[in-house]
Simulated assay, not measured.
Amino acid sequence: MTGPFVTRRAGLLALPLLAGCSVLDRPYVETLRYPLQPARPAAMPVAMPASAVRGGRPRRPTLMIRGLRAAPGLDARGLRVIRADGTERLDPYAEWVGPPNELVEEQLRRWLAASGLFGGIVAQGTRARTDLVLEGEVTALEADLRDGQSRAGIAVLLLAGDDGGGGRVVGQWAVIGRAPLPASTNPDGPPPGAIAASGTEALAGALTALEDALRAHA
């Protein structure tokens, strides 16, 4: 009885070793990480400071930006591709450097600060006077192979701040930026670097559209 028992035990012990060999033999694939930092076009208008306006002008409002939420499916870092057949793919080895909604929020702050539309851009929890409050959601950040474009979408509410408005809705917009994708015969689309660059360009378009919408309230 000891012979078969020993033989069987030895065979069972060998199984993990064999499984371990298959893992060790798997080739290492480096994960690529891409920033999401759209460049503001130099030709875009910048609001003039109040001191430069003849006759004076009331101070520019202070804007609070609350954290942008992520729409379902947009909380993952992997580059998101919609294939020609409509199926979705998250690249396991190519991703943004952070959660997309957090990266878009950071770039929204930088973009609006550079616009000169507001006297200040502050974060939630500040004790500074807040005239307007912006909150919203990142609704799209994807490469769509069906039309050969990347899309970046943001939906926002603009609310009255500390002026006694009591959170009254001042404006509501859903903006989408688009950018072309390079042609590719790969069913998963062009290389990750091209997808990330196209997504960044699409976000620049969305931020431009949002700035234009907010201009009337600055």
Rank of each mutant, 00 (worst) to 15 (best):
M1P: 09
T2D: 10
G3L: 15
F5G: 06
V6D: 00
T7S: 12
A10C: 01
L12H: 00
A14C: 02
P16V: 00
P16H: 00
G20Q: 03
D25Y: 06
D25F: 03
D25G: 07
Y28R: 13
Y28F: 15
V29D: 07
E30A: 15
L32K: 14
Y34N: 08
A39T: 14
A43S: 15
A47N: 02
M48P: 07
P49I: 08
G55N: 07
P58G: 08
P58M: 06
R59E: 06
T62L: 01
M64Q: 09
I65D: 02
R69A: 14
R69L: 09
A70C: 14
G73M: 01
L74A: 09
A76M: 07
L79P: 05
V81G: 10
D85Y: 00
A94F: 03
E95W: 02
W96V: 05
W96S: 07
N101F: 12
E102Y: 07
E102V: 12
L108A: 11
R110D: 01
A113S: 15
L117W: 08
G120T: 04
Q124K: 14
R129E: 01
V133K: 01
V133P: 05
L134P: 05
E137Q: 12
L145K: 04
R146S: 13
R146W: 09
G148R: 13
R151S: 11
A152M: 09
G153E: 01
A160W: 04
G164Q: 03
G165M: 06
G166F: 03
G167P: 00
R168H: 07
V170Q: 13
A174S: 14
I176Y: 11
P180V: 13
P180S: 15
T185C: 05
T185P: 01
G189C: 08
P191H: 15
A194V: 05
I195A: 08
A202C: 15
A204K: 11
G205F: 07
A206E: 04
L210E: 00
E211L: 11
A213Y: 01
A218R: 08
